[in-house]
Computed example of a mutant assay.
Amino acid sequence: MDDEDLLRLDQQICFSLHAAARAFNAVYRTLLKDLGLTYPQYLVMLVLWEHDELAVKKIGERLRLDSGTLSPLLKRLEAAGHVERRRSAEDERSVTVRLTEAGRALREKAVAVPRALADSTELSLDDVRDLRTRLDQLTAALDAHSGQGAKKTAS
């Protein structure tokens, strides 16, 4: 690739990922409307459906979100009756989040979302798995290059 092509927008992997993320968000917006969730709220719920209760710090680490971004999401989820937040008795600085019964019940409706999204991609299941694996590898390589991988390992 010559120097001229290096700076073409259509040659940038970051832009391809950005465009794909925006397209995903548009599909998710439609799919999540009936659940009353935004995409970031859906991600929080996915983590909690796996673990039922987690410290806010752990949720943030898992979703790669800082507390300034995560706190408003959790407040809205709590106001909607999906989660409860509690301060730890052992450490006042630590807040845990747990699913309510309504939050657990929402999981049953949400099961249809990944299938509908998979259908929207028009990719085979094997292609989706391969793409996810490659994106995970890309993320790990970029984290290692930026120093993020070392931070995760140290914590």
Rank of each mutant, 00 (worst) to 15 (best):
A80M: 12
D136S: 07
R64W: 05
A55E: 08
G147Y: 01
K152C: 03
A154D: 10
V44E: 00
R93N: 07
Q12F: 04
A144V: 06
A116M: 13
E61T: 05
S88T: 09
S67H: 15
L131E: 03
E122V: 12
K33W: 14
A80W: 02
T69C: 08
G81F: 03
R98W: 03
R132P: 00
L125N: 08
S94D: 13
L32W: 02
G147S: 05
A118K: 07
R64P: 01
L43I: 02
L123E: 09
R132Q: 13
Q11H: 13
G103F: 02
L125R: 12
K75I: 11
S16M: 13
H145Y: 09
A141E: 13
D2L: 12
K152L: 11
E53F: 04
H51F: 08
R107M: 06
D136H: 08
A55Y: 02
V44W: 00
T100V: 10
L46I: 07
E4R: 15
L135N: 07
A89W: 09
T30L: 14
K109N: 11
L135E: 04
D136Y: 07
S16P: 05
L131W: 06
L31K: 02
L77R: 00
T121V: 05
D34C: 11
E90T: 08
G36F: 10
C14A: 13
D143N: 07
G60S: 01
T69P: 02
A105I: 04
E92Q: 08
D119R: 14
R85S: 06
L7N: 11
R129E: 02
A105W: 06
L70F: 01
D127H: 10
R29S: 15
L48T: 00
A154R: 10
D3N: 15
A141K: 10
A154T: 06
D2E: 15
E101P: 02
A118F: 04
H145F: 10
L32S: 03
V27S: 02
L70I: 02
L6D: 05
D34F: 08
D136V: 04
A19F: 11
A26D: 09
S67V: 11
D52Q: 10
V56E: 09
L135D: 05
T139D: 12
R64D: 04
M45Y: 01
M1N: 15
A140W: 13
L6W: 10
G149C: 03
S16Y: 14
G36Q: 12
L6M: 14
S146Y: 12
E50A: 14
V56H: 03
R87F: 04
D91T: 08
A144I: 06
H18A: 14
R62A: 05
A150D: 09
A80R: 08
R107Y: 03
L37N: 00
H51T: 05
L123M: 10
K75W: 05
I13P: 13
L17A: 11
V128R: 06
G36T: 09
I13M: 14
L125D: 13
V113T: 01
Q11S: 14
M1G: 15
Q12S: 14
I13E: 14
V111C: 03
R62L: 03
A19W: 09
V27A: 04
H82W: 04
R62S: 09
L142G: 06
K57G: 05
R22V: 10
G60M: 00
S120Q: 05
A89K: 08
L125C: 12
L6F: 09
L43V: 03
A102Y: 04
S155A: 14
R76D: 13
